[in-house]
């Protein structure tokens, strides 16, 4: 059954990919592209299926022209002794945790950008170098970035990494949901290589349905929580697990979009430039009155 739905998703993604290439004429705008398409794609990560082979790590590096080494070297399970984070050498990493309920297999969790529906990085970036694309991916534009690292401050999942060792043209590095591959109708590299189908690529709404169904059918296998369905307003990547997500090092986050408060303050201060202009007028008035009063005082003398 997962195979069938995957083929189905593949077809749909090809159609969407074609649509995106057709729409990619950029128009002048005062802010970055931030599209929340109803047909946006996502990935459902079933951590109860993942075996920790780390093939996805290799495929990711291979697809993004990062030094990947040979695939066999990834069989070494010693790396699990330490919890790792994505960085400029690896845009995704797999960490291993102790077994969850009704299982004696360790839990393996793939970590990468969650591709939020309301991304903090898109909201924060000073030049609008980040954008949320129609297919759900949150991507970064190297031609705009000034390297201020505010995206890293903003990201609730602590995902974007910076090339601190580079004196010239350091990049912000993070998973781009294989934007270039999916544009051509291909699957994201990690999804394609996964030998156990722990990763399911498809329209997000569909994935939520699939995830709910899996929990309902196998209540012993999963805890009743799809991480990413509601967290920070929803993410394109979602997770299923058999133990509490906080035990798997997922941050505890509310349902509100991360940029919400900051954006409403920002727009409050700048509502059609009314507050600054009013303040200017007010100060001008005070200045005129106090000057006039001074002049009158002088005249009276």
């Amino acid at each position: 059954m997962p195979g069938k739905s995957r083929r189905d998703f593949l077809k749909k993604s090809a159609i969407i990919g074609a649509g995106i290439t057709g729409l990619s004429t950029s128009t002048a705008k005062a802010g970055p592209k931030n599209i929340l398409s109803p047909d946006r794609m996502g990935v459902l990560v079933d951590t109860t299926v993942c075996v920790g082979c780390r093939n996805c790590e290799w495929a990711c590096k291979d697809a993004h022209n990062l030094p990947a080494g040979n695939l066999e070297s990834y069989e070494d399970r010693k790396v699990f002794e330490k919890k790792r984070r994505p960085d400029h050498t690896a845009l995704t990493v797999v960490n291993e945790y102790s077994p969850g309920k009704n299982s004696n297999m360790p839990v393996d969790v793939k970590v990468q950008c969650m591709h939020c529906d309301h991304p903090a990085c898109v909201s924060a970036c000073i030049v609008g170098a980040f954008s949320k694309q129609e297919n759900g991916s949150v991507i970064w534009d190297t031609d705009m970035c000034i390297g201020c690292r505010y995206c890293m401050v903003a990201c609730p999942f602590q995902v974007p990494a910076f090339e601190y060792h580079k004196a010239l043209h350091p990049d912000i590095m993070k998973c781009d949901f294989c934007f270039e591959r999916t544009k051509e109708g291909k699957l994201p590299a990690c999804v394609e290589i996964c030998p156990v189908e722990a990763l399911t690529y498809g329209p997000r709404t569909e994935l939520v349905r699939v995830a709910r169904e899996r929990i309902k059918k196998n209540p012993d296998r999963y805890i009743d929580h799809i991480f990413g369905e509601y967290e920070v307003g929803g993410t394109s990547w979602m997770y299923l697990a058999n133990k509490d997500f906080s035990e798997l090092d997922f941050p505890k986050l509310g349902d509100k979009p991360a940029p919400g408060v900051s954006e409403s303050i920002q727009h409050g201060i700048f509502a059609y430039f009314v507050p600054p202009v009013s303040l200017y007028a007010l100060l001008g008035g005070i200045m005129w009155i106090s000057k006039r009063r001074k002049e009158l005082e002088e005249e009276l003398k």
């Binding site: 005062a30 924060a124 000073i126 030049v127 609008g128 000034i146």
Partner: peptide, 13 residues
């Protein structure tokens, strides 16, 4: 860059 690349949502901008 911020002079010509605007992001009105960004406090840093």
């Amino acid at each position: 860059h911020p002079l010509i690349m605007w992001n009105g949502n960004s406090a840093l901008f």
